[in-house]
C-alpha cells in the first residue's frame, strides 16, 4: 500500500513535469524576477561592495520568498479554470497525492532552481564562499517549506479575483521562521560560527510542513472548488 502511494505520487510528478515543460516561460518568469530583484538591490545601494555583503543574505532570502510567492499564483490556477481540479478532488485516492505531486514539481522549478542560481547571486552580492555554501544549504532545506506552506495560501485564494495581493498577505507572515533561520545561518557562517542548529530547525520545519500541509491544501482546495 505504501509503495502504491509513493508510485502514485511519482507518476503525478511525472505528469505535472510534462505539463510544465510545455510552457517553460511560467517557470522562467519567477527566476528572472529573482535575479532582477537582487540586481535592483545591488544597483539601488550604489554597488558598494562591503554594504552589499552586509545585506546580501537577507536580500537573497527575501527575494526567494517573493519569487516563490509570485510563482504560487499559477500553481492551481489552470487546473481550477478548466475543471481538472474538481475531478482530481473527486477521483484521486487518497486526495493528497495529486496535491503533493504538484507541490514537489513546484519546488523543483522554484526552490531548487533558485538554489542553483545562488552562486551567481552571491557573486553579485559579494558574499564569501563559505556563506554561499551555507546559503545554498539553507535554501535547499528551507524552500520545500515555502512551497508547502505557500500551496495552502494558493489553494485558499485560487478562485478569487483579488488573488495576488491577498495571497501575499496570507502567506508571507507564515514564511517568517524559514526566513529567520535561513538568514541567520548565513550571517553566522560569515562570522565563522556553527550553523547546525539552524539547519536542524529548517529540516524540522520542512518535515512538519510536509506532514501537515498536504491535508490543509486538500481542505483548502475543497473549499475553493465548492464556492464556484
Amino acid at each position: 500500500m505504501r509503495s502504491a502511494i509513493a508510485g502514485q505520487v511519482i507518476s503525478q510528478v511525472v505528469r505535472e513535469w510534462r505539463t510544465i515543460a510545455r510552457a517553460p516561460i511560467d517557470v522562467a518568469n519567477p527566476l528572472m524576477f529573482f535575479f532582477l530583484g537582487i540586481s535592483l538591490f545591488a544597483i539601488g545601494t550604489g554597488g558598494e561592495r562591503e554594504g552589499l555583503a552586509e545585506i546580501g543574505p537577507a536580500v537573497i532570502w527575501v527575494l526567494v520568498l517573493l519569487a516563490n510567492l509570485l510563482s504560487l499564483d499559477t500553481l492551481f490556477k489552470r487546473d481550477h479554470a478548466d475543471g481538472t481540479l474538481e475531478q482530481l478532488l473527486l477521483l484521486a485516492q487518497p486526495v493528497f497525492v495529486p496535491v503533493l505531486g504538484k507541490v514537489i514539481v513546484h519546488w523543483c522549478f522554484t526552490g531548487v532552481m533558485m538554489t542553483l542560481l545562488t552562486p551567481l547571486s552571491a557573486l553579485v552580492m559579494n558574499l564569501t564562499l563559505d556563506q554561499t555554501w551555507i546559503l545554498m544549504l539553507t535554501l535547499i532545506l528551507g524552500t520545500p517549506s515555502l512551497s508547502l506552506i505557500g500551496a495552502i495560501g494558493a489553494a485558499l485564494t485560487v478562485g478569487l479575483r483579488s488573488g495576488g495581493v491577498l495571497l501575499a498577505l496570507v502567506v508571507l507572515p507564515l514564511y517568517l521562521p524559514v526566513l529567520i533561520f535561513g538568514v541567520s545561518a548565513a550571517y553566522l557562517a560569515g562570522d565563522g560560527l556553527a550553523v547546525t542548529a539552524q539547519l536542524y530547525w529548517l529540516g524540522a520545519i520542512a518535515v512538519l510542513a510536509l506532514t501537515l500541509a498536504p491535508f490543509a491544501v486538500t481542505q483548502a482546495l475543497a473549499i475553493s472548488v465548492e464556492q464556484t
Binding site: 506552506i149 495552502i152 485558499l156 496570507v170 507572515p173 507564515l174 490543509a216 481542505q219 473549499i223 464556492q227
Partner: peptide, 13 residues
C-alpha cells in the same frame, strides 16, 4: 466558504 477558509487559515496560523 469564507467561514471555512478563515477557519483553516486560523488553524494554520
Amino acid at each position: 466558504s469564507a467561514g471555512r477558509a478563515c477557519a483553516l487559515l486560523a488553524l494554520v496560523g
